[in-house]
Amino acid sequence: MLSKLDTLIIEFDTGLRTLLAKPRSIRAHPDAGVVETDLSECEKNQASALMRVNHTGEVCAQALYSGQALTAHRPETTAALKQAAIEETEHLAWCESRITELGGRTSLLNPLFYAGSFTMGVIAGALGDKWNLGFLAETEKQVGEHLANHLEKLPQSDQKTRRIIQQMQLDEAKHASEAKQYGAAELPAPAKFLMKKVSKLMTTSSYYL
């Protein structure tokens, strides 16, 4: 059985890998086989900025789930969070690869957002499993809304980026559904409002930085 120190070391290593290492995907990238179309520089910049926001969102998800798993009470909750984290790592890989193809870069603010999200995850987990899972479900719901918005803003001809975002949408919806099946509680309105404000700060700043 791991000690508290061992667990903290593992989580610290997870953070370093998320921020510094090249993520890998077990599944094939959703855009594999999709032909790249000629995009203008303006279209590339737009798609790259949107994918930078999505990449930062996945960095936040990794941190959030690591913090939540650290303080979760039931083994089933911890397992659900860790499985979601594995798929979020794949999203990181997809986003990072597409950003590189578009000639963009990831956000300079990722370390700051990772630290903040990890702290939020630890607090959510400490409140109890039903609230922990409720936080997971609401997070995935809000992420799904952001992705839907990005599909509307994305250049119509950029089918490679569109395919990635669509698969991410499906995965996020599945995570939210699984959280509810495990007993997620409905978060109170003020909590949802605060989460949206924090999310707005992340998406706006990472779009440019």
Rank of each mutant, 00 (worst) to 15 (best):
T161I: 05
L209I: 14
R74N: 06
C60H: 04
T7R: 15
S3T: 14
L154I: 04
E152Y: 12
K44H: 05
N132A: 07
Y208I: 10
L147Q: 07
T77V: 14
A85Q: 15
Q62D: 10
Q181K: 14
E11K: 04
G128T: 08
A84H: 11
L16T: 11
C60E: 05
C95A: 12
L194E: 06
V34S: 02
I164R: 10
T89H: 11
A185K: 11
T77R: 02
E87L: 14
K141Y: 10
C95I: 03
A124E: 08
V198F: 12
S117D: 13
T78M: 09
I123S: 06
K197R: 13
I9T: 14
V198S: 03
E41D: 14
F118D: 09
L92H: 03
F118G: 05
N54R: 02
N45G: 15
A63D: 07
R105F: 15
V198A: 09
R98W: 13
K192G: 02
E145T: 05
E11L: 10
A63S: 06
E138K: 10
S117G: 09
I165E: 04
V122L: 15
K197G: 05
D171T: 05
F12Q: 13
E101D: 15
H29V: 05
T100F: 04
H73N: 12
E43G: 02
L209R: 01
T56P: 02
C95T: 09
L194R: 03
K200G: 07
T77S: 08
Q62S: 06
S97N: 12
Q68G: 00
T14A: 12
G121S: 05
T78D: 00
E140K: 03
E152P: 02
G67T: 01
T78Q: 09
L133Q: 01
S25I: 00
M51R: 01
A191P: 00
A184Q: 01
Y182W: 14
T14S: 12
T203H: 05
L20V: 10
T89E: 10
G121K: 08
L136H: 08
G144W: 04
K160W: 08
K130R: 15
F113Y: 14
L5C: 02
H91V: 01
Q181S: 04
Y65A: 01
V35M: 14
A124R: 04
Y114I: 08
A184Y: 03
R24I: 06
M168H: 08
A93Y: 09
W94I: 02
L81P: 03
D6K: 06
Y207R: 06
E87P: 05
E11R: 13
L16G: 07
Q46N: 04
R162C: 03
A148F: 10
A189L: 10
G116F: 03
I10G: 11
I164A: 08
L50E: 02
G116M: 04
A69C: 06
G125N: 13
S107C: 14
L5K: 12
T204F: 00
S177K: 13
A191I: 07
H55M: 01
P30C: 05
Q46W: 00
